[in-house]
């Protein structure tokens, strides 16, 4: 007993300071971002983020004012667009993907294995190479610069299907049969029995999907054309130029764009972790 303690304590004295130091370095950019929001855009442009002026002498909230009235309040429009797209993408993608995942996991039917392999194959195709034909398609069907055009290719997520399928496989068939005996049809069984049982899977996928939707970059960059339709990342990106930036709005806008996910993370940390690991790789 005493032996174990005396053997492990010295290691702690090295380990935690080392980890804590590194972790602080990882948090530094986030801290620096928050501090920079209180500086003038001109100072940021001229000096960047420096150690000497890391914590501003006076806290100036003007940059936050620009978010509300700068450029006719365009930032709030971007925020609204991002919120709408995130809510709809998460809701619809979870709905469709859970149906498919459940179908693949809970039933035996001809073509099931083939479909499952297809899901795995699709997970290996980089979306980036499909943007050109998808872009042509959006022009043809009038989806450019619209919410639905930004959503359409993401309504069914292969990863979410895979995740729900792994979860559905583990649901005892007796539950489903009990529902059948009670006279429920196949779809009621899904909505009344299976979906509630899959609640943790919905939680994990809701977090993961909304994170991806909120930070989504390449596709909205292509689909959204007018300033009024931009999402937060694309709107902020439009303030970035290689040789000089509108830091007033950019810096406070960047901080506020990061806030929702960080808040959600602190409340639902467990779901972030399980979304990454459950059903994935097994030893």
């Amino acid at each position: 007993m005493a032996g174990t303690h005396s053997r492990f304590r010295p290691l702690w004295l090295v380990k935690y300071p080392l980890l804590f130091g590194t972790a602080l370095m990882f948090l530094f950019p986030i801290f620096a971002l928050i501090m920079a929001t209180f500086k003038t855009g001109r100072d940021l442009m001229r000096y960047g983020i420096t150690f000497q002026t890391l914590i501003p002498e006076t806290f100036d909230f003007k940059n936050y004012g620009y978010l509300i009235d700068g450029k006719d309040g365009i930032y709030l429009t971007w925020y609204k667009n991002s919120l709408i797209l995130t809510v709809f993408q998460t809701g619809l993608s979870l709905f469709f993907s859970s149906l498919v995942g459940y179908g693949l996991g809970a039933y035996r039917f001809i073509g099931r294995n083939f479909l499952f392999v297809l899901v795995l194959f699709v997970m290996l195709v980089p979306l980036q190479i499909l943007i050109l034909p998808l872009y042509s398609m959006m022009i043809d069907i009038g989806g450019m610069d619209t919410y639905w055009g930004a959503l359409l290719p993401f309504l069914v997520s292969p990863f979410a299907i895979f995740f729900f399928r792994q979860y559905a496989v583990g649901i005892p068939k007796d539950y489903l049969d009990a529902g059948r005996v009670d006279g429920l049809n196949e779809y009621s069984i899904f909505f009344r029995i299976t979906a509630p049982l899959m609640a943790p899977a919905f939680g994990a996928m809701a977090i993961l999907t909304s994170q991806q939707a909120w930070n989504s970059f390449l596709w909205p960059l292509i689909v959204m054309r007018t300033s009024q339709m931009l999402t937060l990342p694309i709107g902020l990106n439009s303030l970035l130029t290689p040789y000089g930036n509108n830091y007033n709005m950019l810096i406070s806008g960047a901080a506020m764009a990061s806030l929702p996910l960080i808040v959600v993370f602190f409340f639902f940390q467990k779901y972030f972790m399980s979304g990454l690991t459950t059903g994935g790789i097994k030893g």
């Binding site: 986030i30 620096a32 764009a257 990061s258």
Partner: peptide, 29 residues
């Protein structure tokens, strides 16, 4: 959690901070 936090930040936000931290002046971080 401390190590995980940066992954929540969008690449645009990260790029903005990194430009400022890696600014070409000799005073930048």
């Amino acid at each position: 959690a401390m190590f995980f936090l940066p992954s929540l930040v969008s690449v645009v936000v990260a790029g903005t901070v990194f430009r400022l931290m890696f600014a070409s002046t000799d005073k930048a971080v």
